[in-house]
Design a protein around this nucleic acid. Structure first.
Lengths: 160, 160
DNA sequence: ATTGAATGTTTCAAAATCAGAAGCAATTGA
DNA sequence: TCAATTGCTTCTGATTTTGAAACATTCAAT
């Protein structure tokens, strides 16, 4: 038992708040770990997540939605990754207003490394067993889908 | 089905990355929702989390550890909450270098409201059923404990 | 008691991040 | 061909976060 009084500490909190605390903690831990492995090509958190998200070519606007951020932030991240030679932009032939962004070979190489490390990072950060990880990722997948479906500031109307 | 191609979209990703994506998405969604309900006393995200964490008096340093941030950030948050009359500081009798921070009655009242809303926010954001929420929060609790136990930039040494 | 090192917190200023408004280019529909 | 819309970018100001130095208290060793 460390300096941190872990167990009785959590008991006062409702399940939902426990879940939130866990999510907050894991969020920071994952970001921290990604920062550690990204010392070589020094990527920001957003850029790292963008690389992970580029398992296929995507439009800038779709990226913004997936990453839950503003288009201008995606522009900045893409600029930086493009300057490093990790991705390139081409006009979307279906709608030439839109940019289609995709990884270069160097980008793929980096993504493969990240993907491989991601498993280890998650395991180390979460401390879950294989089965627990599987259960957790299924629930996380549901949550992700729900958030993408319900979108931005909606969804709390039921609380008024 | 909305504009977002949710299902086949997720299948390319490993379970761990799926889990991460879910965590990232939930993190933002929760923050966003907390911002929405905190329009009245305009609290920052950190201040909101601090209120939730103050189910009992705690030292500043412990707060920093629990909230995974730097002591100076906790100082700022506590200053703001103190100015609003939500908490007060007293010297810790066990070690008079340390401040013991705790909610005032007004702080408790606000915390009760937040706690009540948190359940609704989590349900709306996650879209999980009651059972799923319970399972998720148990796993999240384990993760939180693990992160507190393993601490900051350790834990990835196994990857080198 | 007194000194020096360590610890808990605060202050302050620099740095990173983020959001939003305005602008540009391509598309759509009349 | 014109106005309205959409997708992205630029730019700027605001908010957040971070880190180094400072300050007060404690602790350990004399």
């Amino acid at each position: 038992m460390t300096e941190f009084e872990s167990d009785e500490d959590f008991r006062n909190l409702t399940p939902e708040i426990q879940a939130m605390m866990g999510v907050f903690a894991l969020y920071w831990k994952l970001n921290e770990q990604f920062d550690l492995i990204n010392t070589n090509p020094q990527l920001t958190k957003l850029e790292s997540r963008m690389v992970l998200r580029l398992d296929q070519p995507r439009r800038m606007g779709v990226m913004a939605k997936l990453m839950m951020t503003v288009p201008s932030a995606v522009t900045a991240a893409a600029d930086s990754l493009e300057a490093r030679g990790f991705l390139n932009r081409t006009r979307d032939p279906e709608d030439r207003r839109a940019w289609l962004v995709q990884l270069t070979e160097a980008g793929w190489e980096h993504r493969r490394q990240m993907e491989q490390l991601a498993g280890q990072i998650f395991a180390a950060s979460s401390g879950l067993t294989g089965d627990e990880t599987k259960a957790f990722s299924e629930l996380a997948g549901k949550i992700f889908d729900n958030i993408m479906r319900t979108g931005a500031p909606e969804g709390l109307k039921t609380c008024e």
